[in-house]
Design a protein around this nucleic acid. Structure first.
Length: 769
DNA sequence: TCACAGTGACTTTTT
DNA sequence: GTCACTGTGA
């Protein structure tokens, strides 16, 4: 595309950011300010106007979706951008490691463990750990890696001062290397190590990439910052884009300091602010701004609404989450009657668990919806089984994968036998240390070879089961190796795999399983997994066979070779956001606030604005600021209309609890928002500036605002109430005994019970007369 | 070794 | 209320 055309649509700040050259550049891009447009235009401009080689541009993002969108948009402006490297941090790390596997001390066929796999590995490595302890340890190890701390790092104590932790971490690393696997943190950490320990690799990378850009820079962690410093040489043009107000991944190690101190770390940095918002009407931005301006640690930025004035956001107080979901349904239905498409609407919530109520309600009312971000497909048992089998074929040392499928379907190989095999594999490994980089299929440390070694020591039943298993794995490996040599040209496909949408169409046109698909199909069958899950289907009426077929289909995008298999597994591990298949395009979006980043909707409802839910009750200090930024992200998704809902009571883990409005609601000035429904007294007091001593109380909506238990008059005889377990009842007696306030309640069911209200805040609910 | 039942823990957010 | 782990008995 002609540069004049794409440059002419930019505002002066965007233009300046696109044509900026020389010094490092920090673009502070507010929500809806055209950030992606700037990055993609810049890529196009560098290639088309400045003669930069497409291959020498590296652009890193945090999500695969963002990477795809960036590639898509940049390519539309400049077709050569297709050859640029646009990846997530993690997939870039994997890319770098596979190309320098030997130097990094890895097999280029390494597979990637998710948290679940890591937990399994650790609990097998240290049987003394309970599942919970293993889980906590894996979590802390991941944090440590976010900060680039190895097991011996002097600052490791910041994560956990317990000396045992360093030991557990160290053992975990050892076992992970033995199995030939990497975890997510390694995909950043090991490239940093590689680049710092091997200057020749570093200079090669630095001369390969003359331009390095990072999107969503506010979400980068310390390790990613280290990686960035290692990639960027003295002559690299570095450009990072981000918004400190949208930093919402601190909990997994994102370091806002990276963006706050960028200019200090890279001297000469120029800062360009994009503050013109093209997405939302002014009143929506006011609410977002009022909330986020309560944060202290921010660079500061004021969004200007280019779209001007519009409908004032609405805050709705509701009794409980059932009312909340039916309110949302009605609101959406009403707009539908006026011709508004379902897809205009997004219902946002803090935690995934909250989606359930909306799903039930919408199903009931026949409102089409889609839940974004449920990665259920790859978490299904049958899919995990098939993937574990594939992983074992690719990497014979993958202990977790081996344990998962060696006895599935049952082959008489229980944990005892499994332990024996793993021990044997480790024995061989220690007796004949081989250069790790030289591991290959026929390697003796392979769990399959180890299995063969111990066959003699097994019972008859286990022996035949294990022999059969060995045979299956080996014939699959043979098949893969042979296919590799007879390889038809599948480059068309793997190119298409990048643009997955086109690719699946391409594949559907062809008949039969092609590429890696025929291999996966074969594996699913010969492993016995298909028959096993078919049986389960009959019992539980599940969709397992269909899911396995779907997996086979997904594999058709990859060539039938070991490399193809590894690529397939990596893709699945790093991008679980399944192509949004045959989703009804006109449907309401149900989504967590975290997942909305980068998205926009004409009409947005942010639900569950209650203290304890949003923000979560354990949040304070910096964490609370992060929750506030999350609120900011949620609000700024809305283009035309914004609704906030807050419930007086909510059922959580099967219990009903009173809820107080989210403190963020108090930060919105009364003029900025229209209030519907019965606002709790605490809210009215706070908002009109009346001091309230009732903070932290849990009065029900409309009832007295004082703390329960101290105010005996609330629990007077004659009042109706609701109890979690016993249902509705009426207070028949209310008195003090030994200084304790006691009430007697007669329930509708006929029973009578005594309570001390003070201790029953969570289960006893006063009901309006 | 497996199937079942009872127990307990648990709910952020994700590459 | 749900899921997953643990322990028991066959």
């Amino acid at each position: 595309m002609n540069a004049d055309r794409y440059l002419s649509v930019l505002n002066p700040e965007q233009y300046a950011a696109v044509v900026h050259e020389g010094s490092p550049l920090l673009i502070l891009a507010g929500a809806g300010s055209g950030k992606t447009r700037v990055i993609t235009t810049k890529i196009a401009w560098l290639i088309g106007e400045k003669g930069v080689e497409p291959e020498s541009i590296l652009a890193v993002t945090f999500t695969n979706k963002a990477a795809r969108e960036m590639l898509d948009r940049a390519t539309r402006l400049e077709s050569r951008a297709e050859r640029s490297v646009l990846r997530t941090f993690h997939s870039f790390g994997a890319w770098l490691l596979r190309r320098n596997a030997a130097l990094a001390g890895l097999d280029s066929g390494f597979t990637i463990y998710d948290d679940d796999d890591a937990k399994t590995l650790l609990s097998k490595a240290i049987p003394a750990l309970t599942r919970q302890q293993a889980s906590a340890a894996v979590h802390k190890i991941a944090r440590a890696k976010d900060y680039c701390y190895g097991p011996n790092h002097p600052l490791l104590a910041e994560i956990d001062p317990d000396p045992d932790f360093a030991e557990v971490y160290s053992l975990y690393e050892k076992r992970l290397r033995e199995t030939g696997n990497l975890d997510f943190g390694d995909l950043i950490l090991l490239p940093v190590k590689l680049l710092t320990e091997h200057p020749e690799v570093r200079s090669r990378i630095q001369s390969r990439f003359s331009v390095v850009m990072v999107d969503e820079y506010q979400d980068s962690n310390s390790a990613q910052f280290e990686l960035l410093k290692a990639i960027a040489g003295p002559s690299t043009y570095l450009c990072v884009v981000g918004d400190d107000d949208q930093s919402i991944y601190r909990f997994r190690g994102a370091e806002v300091q990276n963006i706050l101190t960028f200019a200090d770390c890279f001297p000469g940095t120029q800062i360009i602010r994009l503050e013109r918002n093209y997405r939302s009407y002014a009143p929506i931005l006011s609410v977002a701004d009022e909330v986020v301006s309560h944060n202290e640690g921010r660079l500061g930025k004021t969004l200007v609404a280019e779209r001007g004035n519009g409908k004032k956001p609405v805050l709705v107080f509701l009794g409980n989450q059932d009312e909340e979901s039916s309110f949302c349904a009605e609101l959406i239905n009403e707009s539908r009657k006026k011709g508004c498409p379902w897809s205009d609407w997004a219902v946002l919530y803090r935690t995934n668990a909250q989606s359930l109520g909306f799903e039930t309600e919408f199903l009931h009312r026949k409102i089409p919806y889609k839940v974004v971000g449920t990665l259920k497909f790859y978490e299904r048992e049958e899919i995990k089984d098939a993937l574990a089998f594939l992983a074992l074929v690719a990497n014979g040392r993958d202990e977790v994968a081996f344990r998962r499928i060696v006895n599935k379907p049952a082959r008489g190989l229980g944990e005892v036998t499994q332990d024996k095999i793993v021990a044997e594999a480790r024995r061989i490994l220690f007796e004949s240390p081989i250069e790790t980089s030289e591991f290959s299929f026929d390697d003796k440390t392979d769990l399959v070879s180890a299995s063969r070694n111990i066959l003699g020591s097994l019972s008859k039943k286990a022996k035949s089961g294990l022999s059969e298993f060995i045979h299956v794995v080996e014939s699959l490996r043979l098949k893969l190796d042979h296919a590799g040599s007879l390889l038809v040209d599948t480059s068309e496909l793997s190119q298409a795999a990048i643009n997955s949408e086109d690719a699946s169409k391409l594949v559907k046109k062809r008949k039969g399983a092609i590429g890696l698909a025929s291999f996966v199909e074969n594996l699913v069958e010969s492993s016995g997994l298909l028959a096993y899950h078919q049986g389960q289907d009959e019992i539980a009426g599940t969709q397992r066979v269909a899911n396995l077929e779907e997996l086979v289909n997904a594999a058709s995008l990859y060539p039938m070779s070991r490399e193809g298999l590894i690529e397939f597994l990596e893709h699945i591990e790093l991008d679980r956001s399944m192509s949004e298949e045959e989703d009804n395009p006109d449907s309401v979006t149900l989504i967590t606030i975290h997942n909305t980043k980068g998205l926009e909707f004409p009409r947005v409802i942010i639900t569950g604005l209650e203290s304890g839910i949003f923000p979560r009750d354990d949040k304070k200090g910096d964490d609370l600021e992060e929750e506030r930024r999350l609120m900011y992200v949620g609000c700024t998704r809305a283009m035309d209309e914004l609704y906030l809902t807050s419930c007086g009571a909510r059922r959580l883990y099967g219990r009903t609890s009173f809820m107080e409005p989210s403190p963020f609601l108090f930060e919105i000035s009364p003029e900025s928002i229209e209030v519907l429904g019965r606002a709790p007294r605490s809210f009215q007091n706070r908002r009109t500036g009346v001091s309230s001593s009732a903070t932290g109380s849990s009065g029900s909506p409309g009832s007295s605002g004082s703390a329960p238990g101290t105010d005996t008059s609330r629990w007077r005889a004659g009042r109706k109430l609701f109890h979690d377990e016993y249902g509705y009842g009426i207070i028949t007696k209310s008195f003090n005994s030994d200084g304790e306030h006691i009430i007697v309640v007669r329930f509708e069911t006929g029973g009578e019970k005594r309570f001390m209200p003070k201790y029953q805040e969570r289960s006893l609910l006063l009901v309006e007369d």
